[in-house]
């Protein structure tokens, strides 16, 4: 009797545990699905807040911080007041730093790092263009050294090239082969889990359609 009760209690505890990790996966999946459906920067920041809450409750998961950084950065491209961008990116950076504390040497974290720098350019393209794109390229190089098959690196590198004036060695002529390379990498890319980073393919296709004909 005692044994069976213990087993029963144990099972309940296990269930509670399972339901906890289940809750994590469900919440993450729901959040990730919402990213692509979100259209305003206010909604995107609310989503960032949600990932931050998950991150605060799950002490050993880096992915909630990663997605919080991603949403905070994406919001900057969604018609946000330019004067607020630096502060938002600081928040994105803080979230990414937390992710990095939990997960060292991850290509996705480096990709996100480059993405944050890239977003900083929009505040003042003329004076930041060169230095921030150099910073982002350094992060991309690091990401490639960890995983040369990460498709998001090539997509964001192409973004950098597209927005660089031709005289600095940019423009569609150089960017398009990169988008194409990214598309090839996306085609063979398999995310590690249902909640692992897998974004960018649609955006990459959209950019190719717009700029590479």
């Amino acid at each position: 009797m005692k044994k069976s009760i213990l087993a029963f209690v144990f099972a309940i505890v296990m269930m509670a545990g399972f339901s906890q990790s289940d809750k994590y996966l469900q919440s993450m999946k729901a959040g990730i699905e919402e990213i692509s459906e979100t259209e305003t920067h206010t909604d995107m920041l609310a989503l960032a807040n949600r990932f931050e809450r998950i991150a605060g409750a799950e002490n050993d998961q880096w992915l909630p911080w990663y997605y919080a950084a991603y949403c905070n950065t994406l919001a900057c491209f969604m018609g946000m007041d330019i004067s607020k961008v630096d502060q938002q990116l600081e928040k994105a950076q803080a979230a990414l730093d937390k992710a990095r504390e939990l997960e060292e040497e991850n290509d996705e974290i480096e990709v996100m790092q480059g993405f944050i720098y890239q977003a900083g350019i929009i505040v003042d393209p003329q004076s930041r263009g060169y230095s921030y794109s150099t910073k982002s390229n350094t992060a991309f190089t690091k990401a490639k050294s960890i995983n040369p098959d990460n498709p998001r690196v090539y997509f964001l590198e192409a973004q950098n090239l597209l927005n660089t004036p031709a005289a600095y060695g940019g423009g569609p002529a150089v960017a398009c082969p990169k988008y194409k390379l990214a598309a090839e990498k996306f085609a063979t890319f398999k995310p590690e889990s249902k909640i692992a980073p897998a974004w960018g393919e649609e955006m990459n296709e959209g950019m190719m359609e717009q700029n590479c004909k």
Binding site: S27, A46, N49, R50, R53, I54, G56, A57
Partner: peptide, 16 residues
């Protein structure tokens, strides 16, 4: 202040 994150610390529960 729109967009503030309000939550019960250490939990999933909260809102913007």
């Amino acid at each position: 202040l729109p967009g503030a994150n309000v939550l019960i610390e250490g939990s999933y529960d909260g809102a913007s």
